[in-house]
Design a protein around this nucleic acid. Structure first.
Lengths: 280, 280
DNA sequence: GAGTGGTCTAGACCACTGG
DNA sequence: CAGTGGTCTAGACCACTCC
């Protein structure tokens, strides 16, 4: 074990939310709510739109950690919705760890935690930037080939179907920390080789170029030993401990769309979960 | 690696829910509400009580996987609550993976999955039994001693304070799979050595003997390499991959009450998470 | 005591699944 | 088409915090 311990905390989780902002509501009754800006995601529930609007305000810095939000009754009036609806939006953000609510006291923007919740989905790049690191990426392999059986099964393909197989090395402050190995069905992403994944987010490309949005994923974690090739590329000793994260992602139509086997350096990452009773 | 692969799937998570059933909430309206058993947690929100009631029915087999529940409007009438309140209970169970709801179709008891959600808290014993395995436990070490600094800090103790340091080996079908190493403050648990942790659940003892309930926990996962001692006791080769799960648990008063460092055999466990957009 | 979030009710309309 | 879950509203009372 040679390696320094630059940072130790991290959450897995990947990409995936679109920051639709809401147009402030034409009020009540007949249920209005302008549809938001771009895309045809017009029909999102109001509480989701409000949550996204508030998220924008937090991310843009309009709302800073420690700030108290206006009372619910006031906020609901501002957004032109019922208090219940507003509370649903707040709950969503609270479950993501972005807001803290204290009965009798108020609703506050959370202090940024060192660790993010493992269950919240966010991009590697954004995650690292929030922690003040400079993320990077490097394509190690990019091939169009026929899928191996286990992967084909997971993606619902036959073994004669073509897939893109991509190895991407992720860097933090120039140092390799994560080897992404992912497979996507070629027929869903024609000409995928045109896009530069060393500069762009995979999910961003999927969404903007192909209209594919990842809505959910199932993933698992296992500890594994670094093989020679993996050790070399991640700059650890063979036999070092790595975290293998398998992932099957689904698109908006519930179709499996990406199969990933990511290898994290065990000395640089820790996967954090908060276990709490589910209060909805 | 000599070991067989008896089973591969598992979720971490530990114990913690008490199956309190609801006290007949004195129906504010025309309500009914079946009651069940013990304790005076009378003041739980109605939706929590309903969720626990339904959970009981699922666990007892009154509701079987695949069964369709009555429509929400009917259920809410049965429980004597508003539909919104009932829906909150259903949502809670849905988030735990116990129910599946399909718009237009109905609410169904989920087929038992091989893996449980990583975020849901459940006891090792119960978890294994659900999978048809025979869990066991063996006390490896049981000492009252002064806390080491890092642990004392986590538990909010001074280094002169005494703690119980307990190593417990967990078995599945007689084979060792998990080495639990946990620390609890001695002053909160007087005479703790009287209890037989090879037969009883730690959390069950805490609750019934000391009135301490674990309400939430913060935990992390890291891959590590088996040291000689660990390898021997877990029946793996030195250098094998293990999963280290650190855990800090809090009681009902938000006091840190247990510090754990559990070692899972990497070849026998996989830690699963579902990543999905939070719809509340 | 005033003000906050937490819970609950009653009723409505919508979107989707199914025969 | 009838019936299901999904969303939203209007209004109420409670539990807690803080001055």
């Amino acid at each position: 074990m040679i390696d320094i311990q630059l940072f130790k905390w991290y959450s897995f989780a990947r990409l995936v939310y679109t920051n639709l902002a809401i147009e402030p509501p034409t009020p009540p009754r007949g249920g209005t709510m302008k549809k938001s800006s771009n895309r045809d995601e017009t029909s999102k529930p109001v509480y989701v739109q409000i949550a996204e609007n508030l998220l924008d305000q937090i991310e843009s810095g309009d709302l800073s950690p420690g700030d108290r939000l206006p009372p619910e009754r006031e906020l609901s009036e501002k957004f032109g919705v019922n208090r219940q609806t507003l509370r649903r939006a707040l709950k969503k953000l609270e479950l993501q760890g972005l807001l803290t609510r204290r009965q009798g006291a108020g609703t506050f923007v959370s202090e940024p935690k060192i660790e993010q919740r493992a269950e919240v989905v966010i991009s590697f790049t954004k995650n690292m930037q929030r922690r003040g690191y400079v993320p990077g990426a490097e394509i190690v392999k990019f091939k169009k080939q026929s899928a191996e059986k286990s992967v084909a099964d997971a993606l619902g393909l036959s073994s004669s179907d073509l897939v893109y197989s991509i190895f991407r090395l992720r860097l933090i402050n120039q140092a390799p920390v994560l080897l992404e190995r992912l497979t996507i069905p070629a027929h869903r992403f024609p000409q995928f080789e045109r896009h530069d994944l060393s500069k762009r987010s995979l999910y961003e490309v999927m969404e903007t170029e192909y209209g594919v949005t990842i809505t959910r994923a199932r993933q698992s974690l296992e500890p594994v030993i670094a093989l020679d090739y993996e050790a070399e590329i991640l700059h650890v000793l063979p036999g070092a401990a790595l975290m293998l994260q398998r992932r099957l992602s689904f698109d908006q139509n519930e179709q499996p769309i990406e199969y990933g086997k990511d290898l994290y350096r065990g000395d640089r990452f820790r996967f954090v979960t908060e276990i709490a009773p589910l209060e909805i």
